[in-house]
């Protein structure tokens, strides 16, 4: 029973990390920036979702509101911060670290702002269905209707995303701009806008991750909560496991990470909450530096 519980918890948490990793990958592919503010942006979107829940009373309305808010924030960040960054800091000794520093700064700004605006309140988002575990043959699982719902929703979103990428012109434009921006421009694609679109999609995916991470935890929301630090680290690690450039890799990376953390906490020690992802990251980087799906050269980018 323990085993099944651990497995299901791991998969649910992992699916949320996958979403986060997807948003990191989308951003990386569109602007070659690892966005350390991604979790911060997810946090902000979740607060938007919280506002919507309290005002409108429905989680299912709040979710798209959060997604829209997240998309908007991300698009603005790309149009203002990232474009300025490319213009001003793409040469000299700072060039390699400038995007890292800028997105970290953004993370700090978002966290501090969120604390200023919502910090004092007891901010709570109630999930759409119960988080009490299913009961089978008299034993109660940790796996709950809520977790099932999260899993299904994430899967559906991923399916939609992959259809968009594989079957539509917008998807083709996104892929072409990511792989060969110059050829994309010569084909008449407005690459600048496609980049913004990539960020917006990432923002929306991050918003869903943030909303689910919150209701899947204890429902409270705080800029310094463990949930969001975990989202920050796990999104990055899952993306790296997958190779940063691959959407499928991000999904698998997230699931692998979720399962590993879940099993470590269950069978080794629950105190290893934060150090386990780090050890997993190091293991991956040592065994296969380019990630599971990454191209060999990617790591040097």
């Amino acid at each position: 029973m323990d085993f099944l519980n651990t497995l299901l918890i791991g998969i649910t948490a992992g699916s949320i990390y996958s979403l986060m990793a997807i948003s990191m990958v989308l951003v990386w592919r569109s602007t070659r920036v690892v966005n350390f503010a991604q979790a911060g942006m997810a946090l902000l979107s979740t607060y938007f979702g919280f506002e919507a829940v309290t005002k409108l009373g429905s989680f299912w309305i709040a979710l798209p509101v959060a997604m829209l808010g997240g998309a908007l924030v991300a698009a603005l960040v790309e149009m203002i911060l990232i474009r300025l960054l490319v213009k001003h800091s793409s040469s000299g000794p700072i060039a390699g670290v400038a995007p890292i520093i800028a997105t970290l700064g953004l993370l700090g700004v978002i966290r501090a702002s969120a604390s200023m605006i919502w910090g004092g309140q007891d901010v709570r988002i109630v999930g759409p269905v119960s988080n009490d575990g299913f009961t089978i043959n008299g034993t109660t699982l940790v796996f709950s209707p809520l977790k099932l719902l999260i899993l299904v929703t994430v899967l559906v979103l991923m399916l939609i995303l992959s259809l968009v990428f594989q079957k539509t012109n917008i998807g083709l434009a996104l892929r072409a701009s990511a792989y060969s921006p110059e050829i994309a421009r010569l084909s008449g694609i407005k690459v600048d806008w496609v980049r913004t679109l990539g960020w917006a999609l990432a923002g929306a995916a991050g918003a869903v991750a943030g909303m689910f991470q919150t209701v899947n935890g204890n429902g409270t929301l705080s800029p310094d909560s463990i949930e969001f630090s975990l989202l920050l680290v796990s999104g990055f690690i899952a993306a790296v496991i997958g190779g940063l450039d691959s959407l499928i890799g991000a999904v698998i990376g997230g699931l692998v990470l979720g399962l590993m953390i879940s099993f470590v906490l269950m069978y080794i020690s629950s105190g290893l909450f934060f150090i386990a992802p780090f050890v997993i990251l190091l293991l991956v980087l040592f065994i296969r530096p380019q990630g599971i799906f990454g191209a060999k050269a990617a790591r040097r980018a």
């Binding site: 012109n169 072409a176 792989y179």
Partner: peptide, 22 residues
């Protein structure tokens, strides 16, 4: 462009579609 200006990660069909995408 110089040197086989195609997007290697895309299929032949997708590369062609790219040319008319706008």
């Amino acid at each position: 462009g110089e040197g086989k200006s195609v997007v290697p990660e895309l299929t032949v069909k997708e590369n062609l579609e790219l040319g008319a995408i706008w």
